[in-house]
Amino acid sequence: MVKVIGIDLAGLESNPSGFSLLTDHELHNQIIYRDSEILKTCAASQPSVVAIDAPLSLPGRGSLREADLALIRRGFRVFPPNFGGMRSLTVRGMKLAGKIRRSGIEVIEVHPRTSGLILFGSDDRKKWVAGLRRAGFELQGGAGRHEIDAALAAVTGLLRLQGKTEEIGTEKEGKIIIPRARCSLSPLRCWRGWRRPRPGSAPPFSA
């Protein structure tokens, strides 16, 4: 069974982070705090990809990465990785992503608000939830803003596996993964025969 984890990461371990495990068509949402909890759950779940809502790299110079600038040019709102409290979030995200990647799991940076605007035309989380349910997803567990952001992060990770996303940014500074415009949402139960493509091969699904 293919699994995807979405994390709405907090800047400090003392603050709540949203965590969502997507299996088949179910999104299991909860609040989680410590990095050790996140790493333990990732190790136990062995997801195909972990999608983190946090900057996972720093700009080469200035306050914004090319990925941030590209999203701003498209009309999306993002915060500089070095801005105020974002700095602690970025540092935590980079360290956590490194540890997960060393275990052989793919980690991507996502931005749920941008995903919500692309998929549902809104930054209203209630509309995200309604849209996910219409698409056949079942949301279980917590339904606060952190959990919903984590759920949309997980869905963005699913779209990544289905070849329905764009990579925004550069290899050097890091990339943000966003849904392609007008892509369709499909739960994992529609892709039971999915297998991870070999490096360099074409994605098995298109928008």
Rank of each mutant, 00 (worst) to 15 (best):
A150E: 02
K3H: 12
I178T: 05
T90S: 09
P199W: 04
K127Q: 14
V50M: 08
G141E: 10
P203Y: 08
H111C: 11
H25K: 15
I105H: 06
I31G: 07
R77I: 06
R61A: 15
D53V: 10
D35R: 09
K164F: 07
L89F: 07
C183M: 09
E147S: 04
A97G: 13
D123S: 12
I176D: 05
A151K: 12
L12Q: 11
I52R: 01
I5V: 14
R195H: 10
P197L: 07
R145W: 03
T170G: 10
I168Q: 02
D124Y: 04
G85P: 01
P197D: 09
D24N: 14
R77L: 09
V155L: 07
G60Y: 02
P47Q: 02
G174N: 11
A130Q: 14
R180A: 12
G174Q: 01
S201L: 13
V4M: 03
P112Q: 02
P179K: 07
F76C: 01
R196W: 06
I176P: 04
E37S: 12
R189P: 00
D24M: 07
D24A: 13
T90L: 01
S184A: 13
V110W: 02
C190A: 14
G18Q: 10
P203R: 08
C42T: 14
H28S: 15
G11W: 01
G6M: 02
Y33T: 15
F120L: 12
I178R: 05
S36E: 14
M1Y: 02
I32P: 08
F79H: 05
A43S: 14
R74Y: 03
K175T: 08
L139V: 08
A70W: 00
I118M: 11
R182I: 02
V49T: 09
F137S: 06
A70S: 13
A153W: 03
T41R: 12
L69W: 04
P81C: 08
Q140V: 15
F83C: 00
G144P: 02
G18Y: 02
H111Q: 11
V50L: 06
I176L: 11
L161Q: 06
E13Y: 02
P197H: 08
P204I: 06
G75V: 12
G136R: 09
P16R: 09
T170C: 11
A70H: 03
E37V: 00
P59N: 09
A54H: 01
R134D: 15
Q46P: 00
Y33C: 09
H111W: 13
H25S: 15
P204N: 13
F137P: 01
L119A: 01
E26H: 08
R198L: 08
R180T: 04
E166M: 15
N15I: 00
I100Y: 00
E138P: 00
R92Y: 03
Q46T: 13
I5K: 00
F205H: 14
A207Y: 02
K164P: 05
P197S: 05
G60D: 06
N29K: 09
